[in-house]
Nucleic acid binder design. Structure first.
Length: 332
DNA sequence: GACTTAATAT
DNA sequence: TATATTAAGT
């Protein structure tokens, strides 16, 4: 059924992009990274991007699939949503114990997850629970009635239950994931928080949990064999342009509220899938690959909103000769 | 209800 | 086969 799905995905990649190239044999230090970067560079510049206020799927296609018209986002909407997020996160911050660090933050900066959990040795953090009640879902924040619910199914307009299409973790989406995980620190990076900060409309906690699981396994492998060539299966993760800071447990940096550039996931009935011309909107949104899944394009998160703090953590770069144990770098 | 881990499905 | 999704246990 999906025997050639890889080939299909490649249709949307530059001609020289070989997603399944034999990295196993000899992954030259950055060959893969360079290619991904080239691909990313190939995307339209900011000037070429379609404004957020325009629909992500053409009206014709939307109507063909009975997709209700999305709420058009204006810059005012985005600003309002950002303010909303910020104020909710501030409320969250006020609920948990405030710290001297956080008290210096500019209004847009959010709670320091480490601080609010500092006495917890497990990754479960009461602060997070308090936050989850204070922070609303992205759909609510966006005021977006066309967003899919954060469930794995939705009803179409005739009341049938539709299966949410399988999410494809594109390099862009993964980059956004990594950005968030790195900002949270691997210890504080739990699915719900990641999902909220990623701010991808339609992305579910389950999507994130699954990807996080995979990412943790990748990090574990990375620790296990520090000098080995990365597994070919780590293609996506290894394509992350920077050494994952996630290897370090805590990023003692309060995370910023990312600029809200929501993306929407459209659920298109599978039987409609064949032969559809891909729709692309790199500004954020979905690239429908014409079959049974979507590729999600996400512009990088703009952390500038509140990240006025420089990290207290020293250079997280991990040299190939170092090993990581329990999140601590061990010099050799 | 959220999280992690393991198993299963595609 | 890779990886997204679901299930089970905490």
């Amino acid at each position: 059924m999906d025997e050639d799905s890889g080939e299909r995905e490649l249709e949307h990649l530059p001609p020289d992009y070989d997603g399944d190239s034999g990295v196993a044999g000899g992954r030259k230090m950055h060959g893969e990274d360079v290619r991904v970067l080239e691909w990313v560079e190939g995307l339209p510049s900011g000037d070429d991007l379609v404004p957020l206020s325009q629909p992500l799927v053409s009206p014709e296609l939307a109507s063909a699939f009975s997709i209700p018209p999305p709420d058009l986002k204006t810059m005012l909407d985005i600003h309002r949503a950002t303010q909303h997020t910020a104020s909710n996160l501030r409320r969250h911050q006020n609920l948990s114990k405030s710290s001297s660090i956080v008290s210096h933050l500019k209004p847009l900066a959010a709670a320091d997850p480490k601080d609010s959990c500092s006495s917890q040795k497990s990754t479960r953090c009461p602060g997070n629970d308090a936050g989850s009640s204070a922070v609303e879902t992205m759909a609510e924040i966006d005021g977006d009635s066309t967003s899919l619910p954060a469930e794995n199914s939705a009803e179409d307009n005739s009341g049938r239950m539709l299966k949410r299409p399988r999410l494809v973790w594109t390099p862009q989406l993964h980059k956004r994931f990594i950005d968030v995980v790195d900002h949270l620190g691997i210890k504080n990076a739990v699915p719900k928080t990641i999902m909220q900060l990623m701010n991808v409309d339609g992305l579910t906690r389950e999507n994130v949990a699954s990807h996080l699981q995979k990412y943790r396994l990748y990090l574990k492998r990375l620790q296990g064999l520090s000098n080995e060539v990365p597994s070919p299966s780590d293609h996506l993760f290894a394509s992350t342009p920077v050494p994952p800071q996630s290897l370090h447990e805590q990023q003692v940096m309060p995370y910023a509220v990312p600029t809200l550039i929501p993306m929407q996931v459209y659920s298109i009935p599978h039987h409609h899938a064949h032969g559809v011309v891909p729709v692309s909107n790199p500004q954020g949104g979905q690239l429908y690959n014409g079959f049974d899944s979507f590729q999600t394009y996400a512009p990088p998160i703009d952390w500038s909103g509140g990240s006025k703090f420089t990290s207290i953590v020293s250079n997280p770069y991990v040299s190939p000769n170092d090993t990581i144990r329990n999140g601590e770098r061990q010099k050799q």
